[in-house]
């Protein structure tokens, strides 16, 4: 078992192996992602019942909640990839972390935008300093910081390390930030309606939401694969296996 894990680890460190295996895996992520997103969207928008309080406007939840969830877990994944890079100096991990950052930030931004759009019919204003929205905003700032560091240093290696250190510090801080923002919020606005905290969600509403969440995660995996593959090709452009790949028509494998 341990030996098998070790072998897997060594293989994971090899860009060529990752490239080849991801070529095979990609459809298994991309196609289910598309299916889940289509089914979830249609179900959520057309077939799920309207909310008794918010009417149809609640349906934005099918984008907002998965995006917010993903933005947070993407940060954790980025930090873990960064830790692997710092500890074992595995370059692949650095590329994965660099691939995740802009994708996670985009989902974070999406969550903020949909939150604001949702806020208009619910609160009557585009932006309310709601606890969840505020910590989302701070998370976006953290993403910006990591992305800025990932490009700031003179060598690529150092930039990746700096980004990894900040993402680890951020990972430790996120629960503290979340907690203090929640605390601050109950202090100032005790009675506002929070967006996602429903007493109990009806099953007919929940199932499409779960499908959408699955779809978002699969989409995320697909995007990370694609970006990492690009990075591999760029960094290994002088290696013979990349040259061979480029010379075979359309890179068919």
């Amino acid at each position: 078992m341990w030996e098998a894990l070790k072998r897997l680890y060594h293989r994971m460190g090899s860009p060529k192996w990752f490239y080849e295996i991801s070529t095979r895996w990609l459809p298994w992520f991309a196609i289910p992602a598309g299916l889940c997103l289509i089914v979830g969207t249609v179900w959520g928008l057309a077939f799920a019942p309207a909310d008794y309080q918010q009417g149809n406007s609640f349906r934005i939840i099918y984008i907002h909640v998965p995006a917010a969830l993903l933005a947070q877990s993407a940060f954790a994944m980025m930090a873990m990839a960064g830790a692997v890079f710092l500890i074992w100096r595995m370059k692949m991990a650095a590329w994965v972390a660099a691939s995740i950052a802009p994708i996670g930030a985009s989902f974070c931004f999406l969550a903020l935008i949909t939150g604001a759009i949702w806020g208009k019919p619910t609160w009557g204003t585009w932006w309310v300093w709601d606890a969840r929205l505020t910590s989302m905003l701070l998370l976006l700032f953290l993403y910006f910081g990591v992305m800025a560091l990932q490009q700031a240093m003179d060598t690529e290696d150092n930039s990746a390390k700096a980004g990894a250190i900040l993402s680890l510090v951020g990972l430790v801080n996120i629960p503290i930030i979340k907690y203090s923002v929640d605390w601050w919020n109950t202090l100032h606005q005790p009675a506002t309606l929070t967006l996602t905290e429903k007493p109990a969600m009806a099953t007919e509403m929940l199932i499409p939401l779960l499908i959408m969440i699955a779809g978002f995660y699969l989409l995320f995996a697909t995007l990370v694969f694609l970006r990492t593959r690009n990075k591999i090709l760029w960094h290994e452009r002088k290696k013979s296996w990349v040259n061979k790949l480029i010379q075979t028509p359309a890179g068919r494998s």
Partner: peptide, 15 residues
């Protein structure tokens, strides 16, 4: 860059 990196981490202390 320093401000960008550090300010979000400062929020709990400020609060």
């Amino acid at each position: 860059l320093l401000s960008l990196v550090i300010l979000p981490l400062y929020t709990p202390i400020l609060i």
